[in-house]
Amino acid sequence: MVETQLRFRDDEPAGDPAVTVDSFGEQTNASAVRIEPGDDARVLLPHLDRIRLVEVNFPVFGDGRGYSAARILREAGYAGELRAVGDVLIDQLAFLRRCGFDSFAPEHPLNAADAEAALARYPEVYSPTVDGRPAIWAKRHGLA
């Protein structure tokens, strides 16, 4: 079990181990699920009220399917923990945060100072996502 290095939530982490998307359908008491790149996040949507943790695995950082999976869950109102695991690197942190991830369990621990700098790098954003940050256009037109 890889340790969660960064967490941006105040609640207690879920204690249950995450099960695969396939098993999740059968184990009606499971509260933690792990999404692999090929999984369809939308199959979880009917069950969001019982999920406390979704782990999204990045076997290689260049496979960006997990970004869409995360946003889809957040767009559907999922408010539990969304954890990026696997090949999670410094320079992907800001993008991951913007797609709704609020905890990170990188396979190889990240340099804490570099991670903090990367997350604080861009003061503004061009596009709205699910992280609540107003887009630059919203600021330009007094909508934020």
Binding site: D63, G64, S68, R71, F95, R98, S127, T129
Partner: peptide
């Protein structure tokens, strides 16, 4: 251009 610049979901297509 602005929409696509640093688009967080579409940087690892």
């Amino acid at each position: 251009r602005q929409w696509s610049t640093f688009h967080p979901e579409f940087s690892f297509l």
